[in-house]
Design a protein around this nucleic acid. Sequence first.
DNA 1: CCGCATCCGGGGCGATACTG
DNA 2: CAGTATCGCCCCGGATGCGG
Lengths: 216, 216
Amino acid sequence: MRSYGQYCAVAKALDVIGDRWTLLIVRELLQGGPSRYTDLRNGLPGIATNLLSERLRDLEAAGLVKREDAPPPVATALFSLTPRGEALGPVLHELGMWGVPYMTEGPASRDAFRGRWLAWPAENFLADGDPDAPPVALELRVGGDSVVVEAAGGEIRTHPGPATQPDAVLTGPPHPILGLLSGGIDLAEARRRGVELQGEEGVIARLRPAGGVPTA
Amino acid sequence: MRSYGQYCAVAKALDVIGDRWTLLIVRELLQGGPSRYTDLRNGLPGIATNLLSERLRDLEAAGLVKREDAPPPVATALFSLTPRGEALGPVLHELGMWGVPYMTEGPASRDAFRGRWLAWPAENFLADGDPDAPPVALELRVGGDSVVVEAAGGEIRTHPGPATQPDAVLTGPPHPILGLLSGGIDLAEARRRGVELQGEEGVIARLRPAGGVPTA
DNA sequence: CCGCATCCGGGGCGATACTG
DNA sequence: CAGTATCGCCCCGGATGCGG
């Protein structure tokens, strides 16, 4: 990308990751770990193939991504983040948190969706209402893939699913699940809109203790 | 900007602030407070006037910026951030911190510079080495404007200068000042490269206690 | 099938000129 | 001072081709 020509940390950062699609590629690698070209293409609906390959080359040249030849059984290239690339985690976290309000308005007509993208709304809306209780895991299973939300000791963590032993599983379309997490609708209303809950119902109550949005 | 068409918090955020120059305009408003058009133009060397006005319109439409008619003595429009715009503070902070390493390599030949841009390197490299001592203020005066770095109770804060009663003032070209802050060069070498120190020399020692880069 | 390279149309961007 | 107007260019998007 064309440099801003400013001796400023923010401008220099944008010189490196300001190109279109670049941060979304980093998002994929952060959430999915080492990935094949096709995995990335699949996680980035809408990207043109030439842009993906060009960005990967740029990111490699900038030292954020490294390309490895996979071990024998796979025999294909794997892209993964270098430490410098992983250091973008906090940036993406803050950016995602800032963007969560745009999701509560519902998806635009033709928006693509992946279940793992619920990680940011989950971290934003949920809290561990009972820090002294044993850890619980809630799996959100939407549109073919899933995120696991874990609450332990007052902390909320998310990582790509599926979970080995989830205490509860929510299945259904993205918008009512989001409404349930944010407190905009209750469980009965969510069920009416296609959400199914397996496992302990108490998990939901623990993660959304106030019945509203905490720390808004 | 063209939407990514993804129902993801990060993608939605980039739909709003992913356009070129947009985050740098927010940077100016965050650091400088309510600003006139010309102030923004001055703080954003390299931007085309049509882009600045177009971005300001977009930002206003998105609810991140509000335009106010200034009080009588000034009689010109002032642009300032809404709460939603100010909520980008943590994003810019993380982005700036991530970009600091690109500044230690020195400015490119034709890079523009403003003293306040030293805020991020200062927050990154400095620490309060003596939390129990009374607060101190260090002013960095570079290229016509300045930042104030305050250390109090173990915390480092920065805000646009000048300071009312600085305990020390560093004046000089950006690169050796940065080298001094980062620990890459010592005070004697910095002086050789055009840096001048007024006030208490001990302030420098307190802010760079280990003589190296803390929490690297 | 995977991982690109190439080609081409359209629009965002950059620089300058111009206006109230 | 605070923008608007204009124009060339390059980045981006979409489609297709192609070697391993």
